[in-house]
């Protein structure tokens, strides 16, 4: 039984289609990254899973419970960490946690024990008596993470949970998530537009303009675009690709705005390429494909929303 099971979900806000025929399953215990630019459909998908929104078409299930038919049951199994911490700044950390525990019917020593345990796991145990307004952004996020876990949810949704954090605080947040997985085996769904965060996930689903355009482990998605490869930055990628292909017997294609050449000894090709096309090449790099490349191949445009070259982006050759 998958922890999250989304079948052919389409959602429209009036005329605007926010999700198009999305099908996705997440196995229990997985750290799943939902990668996509703003407006890709991540937030809509989370609203559906968290029972705040009924999908126009299709079904969504959490722990085998339909979110539309049994929202109350789903809510018990689900924790949600929103883009902005759901904390009242004028209350203390402990007061906030008690308040949210009460919304799940938790009280007394059970709540106290759980609250202290989570505060320990996320490094806010010594701040329980302090008002939230005195906490740094990173501590607020970790307090909010504890807040979402009080009722021991099977599935935790995190909607861009590191927005506005500096690199150190982001790192600490992801470490906290790792400790949580180890301790409780919670299934985690993280929406993000940050590539390095998606890299940390067991599996990644790429959402673009409401479509799930790719889905798999970060390694598998990147390997599908070739291993160590040569990348040429140029003004007109399609033309350069055609010329390279005409002159050399090479596996060459356009990814995003760059020309990519797959070859076991990619850097040995450089002198010959510079001799032939030097003026057109702005820069050349040897590196592995990134998730950003994966996104561009499958979405047909850059992550920031620019369409790539005049020709449509290629699908992986093999």
């Amino acid at each position: 039984m998958p922890a999250v099971d989304i079948q052919q979900v389409t959602h429209r806000y009036g005329d605007h289609v926010a999700l198009r025929d999305v099908t996705l399953t997440v196995a229990p215990g997985t750290l799943f990254g939902l990668l996509g630019p703003n407006g890709g459909g991540k937030t809509t998908l989370f609203r559906i899973l968290s029972t705040l929104l009924t999908p126009s078409e299709g079904t969504a299930r959490v722990q085998d419970l339909d979110v539309t038919a049994r929202p109350d049951a789903v809510r018990r199994h689900l924790g949600v960490v929103f883009q902005e911490p759901a904390l009242d700044e004028s209350l203390t950390v402990a007061e906030n946690l008690r308040y949210h525990g009460a919304l799940y019917g938790l009280h007394g020593t059970t709540l106290t024990a759980r609250l202290q345990h989570l505060a320990g796991v996320f490094g806010v145990a010594d701040r329980l008596g302090d008002r939230v307004q005195t906490l740094s952004g990173g501590l607020r996020r970790r307090t909010d993470l504890a807040r979402g876990l009080l009722h021991r949810p099977d599935v935790l949704l995190l909607d861009e949970p590191t927005t506005g954090l500096d690199p150190a605080a982001r790192h600490a947040f992801w470490q906290a998530l790792a400790r949580l997985r180890q301790a409780e085996g919670t299934t985690l769904l993280v929406a993000t537009h940050l590539m390095d965060e998606a890299e940390r996930c067991d599996e990644v689903g790429i959402l673009d303009r409401g479509r799930l355009v790719a889905h798999g482990t970060p390694d598998a998605l990147k390997t599908a675009l070739g291993g160590e490869t040569l990348w040429l930055e140029t003004a007109d990628a399609a033309t350069l690709r055609d010329r390279v292909a005409a002159r050399f017997d090479l596996d060459v294609r356009v990814i995003g705005e760059a020309v990519q050449i797959s070859h076991p000894e990619a850097h040995d090709l450089l002198p010959a390429l510079y001799d032939a096309f030097g003026p057109q090449i702005d820069s050349a790099t040897v590196r592995r494909p990134t998730l950003e490349d994966v996104f561009m191949v499958h979405a047909g445009h850059t992550f920031e929303g620019r369409t790539t070259s005049s020709t449509p982006a290629l699908q992986p050759a093999s």
């Binding site: 689900l78 949600v80 929103f82 902005e84 911490p85 759901a86 904390l87 919304l103 799940y104």
Partner: peptide, 13 residues
């Protein structure tokens, strides 16, 4: 519109 009330809305209360 912010997290605080939304957290209450996704709770079983």
């Amino acid at each position: 519109q912010r997290g605080f009330l939304q957290a209450a809305l996704v709770a079983p209360a």
